[in-house]
Nucleic acid binder design. Structure first.
Lengths: 337, 337
DNA sequence: TTTGCGATTGCAAACGTTTGCAAAACTAAA
DNA sequence: TTTAGTTTTGCAAACGTTTGCAATCGCAAA
């Protein structure tokens, strides 16, 4: 009903100038105690709240940091966002979340929106479709600090916060081997996704270091529930089927498990399954899914902290890359050893 | 590097006034074609983008709509947000998402932030802790249009977008009855959560309309995975255990299923299980979970559309309540009939 | 009574944009 | 050349805030 109270309103009712009110509210030493008391009292009474828009204009800097993620529906991204929010709120920043929906054009629009709204900085995880980074370069050239996390652009100098996907995959596959698997298949992401590529590299390295020959038949590009089902059926119909499956993410792993169950194949006795992400799913399946915990919340806090640093003191040198630790979460879908 | 280009910059290089540039960019009829061409060309060359902050200040209205949800990590809220974003983006609005984390104080801070940033309007689903609505009243009194969805404040006049929780629960329980269950237990939410209350009412109504006596032993407050496990164990140890369980949400239902499985009780043969939400989980469990689809995406689009209406032409009369359809998604955890 | 000084306060400009109104420039008719 | 339009442009204020600088006030020292 009543429109918003401004400093001018307070000034007018008190018969003083706006500058005095402004200073009084900030407890400036030049202002007499009596005036301060008067102003503060009235401000409280009228429920005065500073207009962040006006402040942003004045300072040519907003208190908003932007986030672009493929989809918040994914447990991993949700946890990263929670981490980001925590750090941002504590530093007095708001968070503006944008979803690219894995769509390149949408990502461009998101970037535009952040620019138009003069976000103080941005935290970005790029979409699967994104191979051209002009929109991000434009953002950076406008002077906006950028920090990329998890899905980072390759060949674009900037700050990165990631997990060591290769190492994490390596450890996951090593665990399968240690627990007795010898014929390990890999349900992989398309190579265009950098993190998928690294995970595949870790898979191969682990085989190699354990003197297990790499078998092309065991490597199938399948990074969704549906694709995993088909791929798994194909795998199990090979003359020598695998006894372990390492999937590039949890949903893919679950697709594999569902198919194995339909085929009456015991998990983990006949075929062990390892996922990647330790999302909310992995607790809930039957059997529960062993996976790689990516520590999304920590990734969020670290990335946000780095961004706030860059906002305070702009980057001069080359970009920094922060690695977040991962660890295996061993559940029922893999064998003990 | 280069800071952001303004209308003044264009004006200066072209030796004309800022107002002319402004009008030229908006294709105002007063401006000659030559000037327009000159301005547009330079604007494109310099990559001019209007400063949304300045615009917001001028218009005393931002192009941002705020969203407050308990947690984006929940599939349901994520889908609602997607629906909101779609409508908002199409109308040229940005979306600022805030999580209360089911925390009352945080919700107040979120509301504050939306006010300070002069959001054009807000879409709100209240936290479990929230029983006092002063912060929301303050928001509304400031003139900000508010639309509540799913978790709406009771006794606070405003626009609501909800599902008919009672009816949805009624239908879910009726299906259990129709498929042969006669002793149906209910894992309920605390009554303080309005939607939980309605769902319990629907449960009781369904029993009543089918001449099944209400049994207090079969009604347990348990609305989490862990609580459901304990509650289910207790239920199955009753002298006459239930043959069907209706859970207030999916995660609770899954907790129940896990326990039933541990106890070696066949689902749905011995005990059928019905969830509520049709989240991403329900597809993935073994057996897959029958549930109530709340159509979160549609709830999001409808709520956002209503809010945009209210922004354009402020509400005068009493609040409107929009009901979103629900439907049963029947999967493996309930019997066919 | 003047001068000087500290303590308070106010003026005005600035951030980037829009817009009513006035002014200038041009065109064409007288 | 003057007059009257018409077209095109610029001035200035406004949105809410901050801040350097100038102004005012009271009061004590000279």
């Amino acid at each position: 009903m009543n429109s918003q109270v401004t400093i001018k309103d307070i000034a007018k009712t008190l018969g003083i100038s706006a500058s005095t009110v402004s200073r009084a509210l900030k407890n400036h030493p030049d202002i007499s105690k009596e005036t301060k008391d008067l102003v503060n009292e009235l401000a409280k009474k009228l429920r005065y709240k500073p207009n962040a828009v006006a402040l942003s204009l004045k300072n040519s800097k907003t208190n908003t940091i932007g986030v672009i993620v493929p989809e918040i529906i994914h447990y991993f991204f949700s946890t990263v966002i929670s981490g980001i929010e925590k750090v941002a709120y504590e530093a007095g920043y708001n968070v503006m979340i944008c979803q690219s929906n894995e769509n390149y054009e949408r990502e461009i629009i998101n970037a535009q929106a952040l620019f138009s709204n003069r976000a103080a900085g941005a935290l970005i995880s790029i979409s699967k479709q994104t191979t051209d980074f002009a929109h991000l370069e434009t953002l950076e050239e406008s002077g906006m600090p950028l920090v990329f996390f998890d899905r980072v652009p390759e060949g674009f100098e900037s700050d990165h916060v990631v997990i060591d996907d290769k190492k994490a995959a390596y450890n996951a596959v090593c665990h399968l081997i240690d627990s007795g698997c010898r014929r390990i298949a890999h349900l992989a992401a398309a190579d265009s996704l950098v993190i998928g590529k690294y995970r595949s590299q870790g898979y191969k390295q682990a085989l190699n270091d354990n003197n297990i020959p790499y078998n092309e038949d065991y490597m199938i590009v399948a990074d969704s529930f549906e694709l995993a089902a088909a791929a798994t059926r194909k795998l199990m119909q090979l003359p020598i089927p695998p006894d372990g499956i390492f999937a590039v993410n949890d949903l893919t792993a679950i697709g594999a498990m569902k198919t194995l169950q339909k085929m009456g194949i015991a998990i983990p006795e006949k075929v062990a399954v390892m996922g990647f992400s330790a999302g909310s799913f992995s607790d809930i399946t039957t059997p529960t899914l062993s996976s790689v915990d990516q520590h999304g919340y920590e990734m969020g806090t670290r990335a946000a902290t780095l961004l706030l640093d860059r906002i305070k003191t702009p980057k001069t040198g080359p970009g920094e890359t922060i690695f977040i630790n991962t660890n295996l979460v061993l559940r029922e879908s893999t064998k003990k050893f």
